[in-house]
Write a protein that binds this DNA or RNA. Structure first.
Length: 160
DNA sequence: CCCTGATTCGC
DNA sequence: GCGAATCAGG
């Protein structure tokens, strides 16, 4: 089932994953067709109009760089469950739709993403099970691993 | 260095 | 329409 190209299913999956906060690379891996993360990003721009956001740098000098060849060795990527749900066969659309928006905080171990506040919330537990591993989950300060509130806490504790 | 998304532009 | 190259930020 490796039909190269963007099928409606593929677009839907990518779109939903993107909206749910998955990274482009993760989406590319999940789709597991010949798409790179750039392809995913490019598709999102066309599909969702990502370019609608105000850009910071107008990129003044798009000087033509050397483009010797476009051939790229596409490595086989492993499709792993991205939200704890194994998606191997069957219409992906049936497993993805339930995702409307971001899950409420705190985030679970499985839902925690790079930009979610990483401050652990289980410091009371000796041996927390994965299910008990909750993180703050609020949006982090860009460049940090914690949200503004947790950054202060972590800093005061000297755990930074 | 690695990663991320964003943009440009050739196909 | 598509995606690699490239860029810019973290």
């Amino acid at each position: 089932m490796t039909v190269k190209g963007w099928t409606e299913e593929r677009k839907q999956t990518a779109k939903t994953m993107w909206l749910s906060g998955q990274t482009a690379a993760a989406i590319a891996a999940e789709l597991d067709c010949g798409v790179s993360r750039n392809a995913v990003i490019g598709m999102m721009q066309r599909l969702l109009g990502t370019g609608a956001k105000p850009r910071k740098q107008p990129k003044p000098a798009p000087v033509k760089k050397v483009r010797p060849s476009r051939t790229s060795p596409r490595s086989t990527k492993v499709a792993a469950g991205w939200d704890g749900t194994t998606v191997i066969n069957g219409p992906v659309a049936e497993v993805v739709p339930p995702l409307v928006e971001q899950p409420p905080e705190p985030r679970t171990f499985w839902n925690l993403r790079l930009r979610d506040c990483h401050r652990p919330l289980w410091h009371h537990l000796e041996r927390p099970s994965v299910d008990a591993m909750l993180f703050c989950g609020k949006p982090v300060v860009p460049g940090s691993s914690w949200c503004p509130a947790c950054a202060v806490i972590v800093y005061q504790q000297g755990t930074a």
